[in-house]
Amino acid sequence: MDTQKVDMFILSNGKFFESHHINMIRERLLAIDDSKWVAISTIQFKDPTTSLIVSILAGSMGIDRFIIGDSGLGVGKLLTCGGFGIWTIVDWFQIQKATREKNLEKIQQFLY
């Protein structure tokens, strides 16, 4: 793919990924075929800020984990009142990272 398209993608979607993953994503995007551009440019990513807001408001019911797609952990959090309140607080700090990793998983399906 040409550099201009890739840089545009990185500029508009950079906030959805961990900073140390962006370089790898950029290199992979430059290497892959142009025909995948339509698919890649239309992927819907989960916003880390949204999941942080949900985590603060409804974290003790595990809604944040359900939203990013970790249904199993979400059930665990729901059943235990948010892991006795401890897991809830841990997730206030971890949920953005978890969301970004989910986004990386999502884009990786198209990169390889």
């Binding site: 974290g59 019911m61 729901l78 235990t80 009142c81 948010g82 309140g85």
Partner: peptide, 18 residues
Amino acid sequence: NMCFIKSITNIPCPSCGS
């Protein structure tokens, strides 16, 4: 009381009492 929702709002959460 270990429940976050119950200690803040005094309303039990879905899994209170388990």
